[in-house]
Simulated scan of single mutants.
Amino acid sequence: MRLKKILNNNAVLVIDNQQEKVAIGTGIAFGKRKNDRINPSKVEQLFEMKENEKLQQLLNRIPEEHFIISEEIISYAEDYLGSKLSEHIHIALTDHVSFAIERIEDGIHLQNKLLNEIKILYRNEFEIGLWAVRHIREKLNIDVPIDEAAHIALHVHTMKLQGGDYQQTIKHTAIVREMIQLFLEKLDMNISEDDLSYQRLVTHLHFALSRVSHYQLHEMDEEMLGMIQQKFSDSYQVTRTVTSCITEKYDIAFPSSELGYITIHIQRLKKD
């Protein structure tokens, strides 16, 4: 393993088995020059990176400490999930974490309006986000709000293999939140985000949107659907009203069977 280029004191480009890779390790570049051998025992992470130029540009404009913290978060996330994340996490999360730290140090705190939905839908990723928030607090002695855990959770989720597109995930989660607000408004209800029925509804709407987006129908027997429409007519009408609003606004069509399942959750919400 030979050094090709120094990115910073803790990250270098190397040639390993005739492939260009990024090697990360504390002080790995100290006293090194091009073509020097890199001791494998110094390497904490080694990965192929198609976006080496983007990574170098990022490392040139952020404090090295921010990069180290981000890499520690990535390592924790991969250990926690038991799987590797997309290589792009090294750019996306590092850029986000560095910018977030700068904002916080300038006294700018951005509220994450999707906090409760992210906490429910992406539990493992949110736990990683909570660890990251504590880690940044300990390393830099700054007050990092819990909202930041939700931002980090989304980055981790979308960097999982087949995790999805970041912007699409935000949009998807925002639609779930909008539907919940519409349901509570139509039902004239207030309910705690910690309530089990609330969490079940959030989770069901998340999977309902995912099924509709991927044209995966959640079938329901016609007789059963008719019974639900008749027995829970008020809840069914509320469901139709809310889903019609979403269809009109986002061009998302919910099949009748999906309306039946959502109605059951609405009925349960009303009873609890």
Rank of each mutant, 00 (worst) to 15 (best):
I73V: 15
Q57I: 12
S98D: 02
H90A: 03
D95K: 08
I89E: 01
R61G: 05
I101L: 06
I108Q: 06
S86I: 07
E65T: 10
N116M: 15
E117Q: 06
E87L: 10
L110S: 09
E72H: 06
L59Y: 14
E65I: 15
E51R: 12
Q57R: 04
S83E: 12
S83K: 11
D79S: 14
L114M: 06
E78Q: 15
F67W: 12
P63A: 07
I104W: 02
H90T: 04
N116W: 13
L58Q: 12
S75E: 08
G107H: 08
I108H: 07
Y76Q: 09
H109Y: 15
S83A: 08
I73L: 12
I91R: 07
S86L: 14
E51L: 04
E117C: 05
E51Q: 13
Q111Y: 09
I104C: 02
E117M: 08
I108K: 06
L93N: 05
K113I: 04
L85A: 05
N52R: 13
H96A: 00
I74A: 02
E78Y: 09
S70R: 08
H88Q: 05
R103I: 00
L46G: 08
I108G: 03
L115C: 00
S75G: 09
E71F: 11
I104L: 02
E87M: 12
E72R: 09
